[in-house]
Computed example of a mutant assay.
Amino acid sequence: MRIIAVSHLKTFWEKHPDVEQPLLAWIDEARNASWSTPAQIKDQFCSASILKSRRVVFNIKGNDYRLVVAVAYRFGALYIKFVGTHQQYDAIDADSVEME
């Protein structure tokens, strides 16, 4: 899968260094994946939450952080929509959030 806007993740881990390695691990796994259905994502990341409008929420670093992506299965692309702490995640609508 192609990951669009990895720079958002880099900016985030510069502020939260403890999440750099978990995010790099997620990036490696996602880039090597070729998901064509939500079920394939759940097979690889059983704690992922599949949302409407082709969005997926990933738990990062033991659920300390959350990552929301929009999946374009047809194009093999993941669009970063949100990365933040669990507390920040609780304050957003994961179905409509966009990176600023």
Rank of each mutant, 00 (worst) to 15 (best):
I4C: 04
I4A: 00
I4E: 01
A5P: 01
A5F: 08
A5Q: 04
V6Y: 04
S7P: 12
L9M: 02
K10N: 13
T11F: 12
F12A: 10
W13D: 07
W13R: 11
W13S: 13
E14F: 12
K15M: 15
H16P: 06
H16M: 09
H16G: 09
P17I: 05
D18E: 09
D18I: 05
V19W: 01
V19R: 10
E20N: 15
E20L: 12
E20I: 13
Q21H: 09
Q21G: 14
Q21N: 14
P22T: 03
L23R: 03
A25G: 12
W26C: 05
D28M: 04
E29L: 13
E29F: 14
E29M: 15
A30P: 09
A30G: 12
R31K: 07
R31H: 11
N32F: 08
A33E: 15
A33R: 00
W35D: 02
W35N: 09
W35E: 01
W35L: 04
S36G: 13
S36I: 11
S36W: 11
T37C: 06
Q40S: 05
I41R: 05
I41L: 12
I41N: 02
D43L: 15
D43G: 15
Q44K: 02
F45Q: 06
A48T: 01
A48S: 06
S49K: 09
I50K: 06
I50E: 07
L51R: 08
L51K: 11
K52T: 10
F58Y: 15
I60Y: 05
I60W: 03
I60H: 00
I60D: 05
K61R: 03
K61V: 06
G62R: 10
N63Q: 13
N63T: 04
D64S: 03
D64H: 01
Y65W: 13
R66D: 02
R66K: 13
R66E: 01
R66S: 01
L67S: 02
L67A: 03
V68E: 00
V68R: 01
V68H: 00
A70L: 08
A70H: 10
Y73L: 05
Y73Q: 09
R74L: 04
F75S: 12
G76C: 14
G76N: 10
L78G: 02
L78V: 03
L78T: 03
L78I: 02
Y79N: 06
Y79K: 08
I80F: 12
F82I: 07
V83F: 04
T85I: 05
T85W: 04
H86D: 06
Q87P: 01
Q88C: 06
Q88H: 09
Q88D: 07
Y89D: 01
Y89G: 02
D90L: 13
A91V: 15
A91Q: 15
A94T: 01
A94E: 04
D95L: 07
D95Y: 00
D95Q: 04
S96L: 09
S96R: 07
V97I: 05
E98A: 12
M99Y: 08
